[in-house]
Simulated scan of single mutants.
Amino acid sequence: MRNSNHLIGLLNFLTFLLSIPILGGGIWLSSRANNTDCLKFLQWPLIIIGVAIMVVSLAGFAGACYRNTFLMWFYLFVMFFIIAALIGFIIFAYAVTDKGSGRPVTNRNYLDYYLQDYSGWLKKRVASDSYWGKISSCIRDSKVCSKMGRTVSGVPETADMFYSRKLNPVESGCCKPPTECGYTYVNETFWNPGGGLVGTNSDCTQWSNDQQQLCYQCNSCKAGVLASLKKSWRKVSVINIVVMVILVIFYVIAYAAFRNNRRIDNDEPYGEARMTKSQPSRIQL
Rank of each mutant, 00 (worst) to 15 (best):
S136A: 15
D141V: 00
S137C: 03
C145P: 00
T151I: 07
R150T: 07
S137Y: 08
S128K: 02
V126M: 07
Y131F: 09
S146H: 09
D129F: 10
K134S: 10
W132K: 05
D129S: 15
R150F: 03
S137G: 15
S137T: 14
V152T: 14
V126H: 08
G149S: 13
Y131R: 08
C145T: 00
C138R: 09
V152R: 15
G149Y: 14
M148Y: 02
S153Y: 11
W132R: 01
I139W: 03
S153H: 13
I135G: 04
S153M: 10
C145W: 01
K147A: 14
S142Q: 04
I139K: 06
K147L: 07
K134G: 01
V144N: 06
K147R: 14
G154E: 10
G149A: 14
V155I: 14
Y131K: 09
G133H: 07
V152C: 09
G133F: 01
V144K: 12
V152I: 12
R140F: 12
W132E: 01
K143T: 02
A127R: 07
S130H: 07
S142I: 03
M148E: 08
S137A: 11
E157Y: 03
I135C: 06
G154C: 11
M148F: 05
V144E: 10
K134E: 11
T158P: 04
K147V: 01
G133L: 07
S128Y: 00
I139M: 05
C138D: 08
S137I: 00
S153P: 02
E157D: 11
V155N: 10
P156H: 06
S146W: 06
K147G: 07
S130Y: 10
S142N: 12
D129T: 15
G149L: 09
T158Y: 00
G149I: 08
E157L: 11
W132F: 09
K134P: 00
D141F: 07
